[in-house]
């Protein structure tokens, strides 16, 4: 194990953990899903580091690609906000994705 390889592993793992926290804490679902796609691609790198190229191939195509497409589609349907309840305010359009999940606005 070379020093730079070890550093790379720690960096990769740190990013994975940080992304996981960010995905689950993210208010905007669209952003959370984009972060999740990045997470899937970094997982594919982790599989390569662990000498599992079979899994890396499947993860890159399925984990990041198809799961990401499914999630993006679902978020688009739910208008992309983490506020899960029907509010009395007029529902947002596509721009609702860009605003913070401030239910009082």
């Amino acid at each position: 194990m070379t020093y730079s390889g070890y550093l790379y592993d720690l960096l990769l793992i740190g990013t994975l953990l940080w992304l996981a926290v960010r995905i689950l804490a993210e208010v905007k679902l669209f952003k959370a899903v984009v972060l999740f796609i990045a997470f899937g691609l970094l997982m594919a790198l982790a599989w390569v580091r662990l000498a599992a190229p079979d899994i890396a191939l499947a993860e890159a195509a399925i984990g990041a690609g198809i799961t990401g497409a499914l999630l993006l589609d679902a978020v688009g349907h739910m208008r992309g906000r983490a506020a899960p309840y029907p509010t009395d305010e007029p529902a947002g359009d596509a721009s609702a994705v860009t605003e913070m999940g401030d239910g009082r606005g």
Binding site: D54, A56, L57, A58, A61, G65
Partner: peptide
């Protein structure tokens, strides 16, 4: 080599 039905199916599905 690394590959097989699942990876091939995933690419086909993509």
């Amino acid at each position: 080599a690394p590959g097989g039905a699942f990876q091939a199916g995933a690419v086909l599905g993509a």
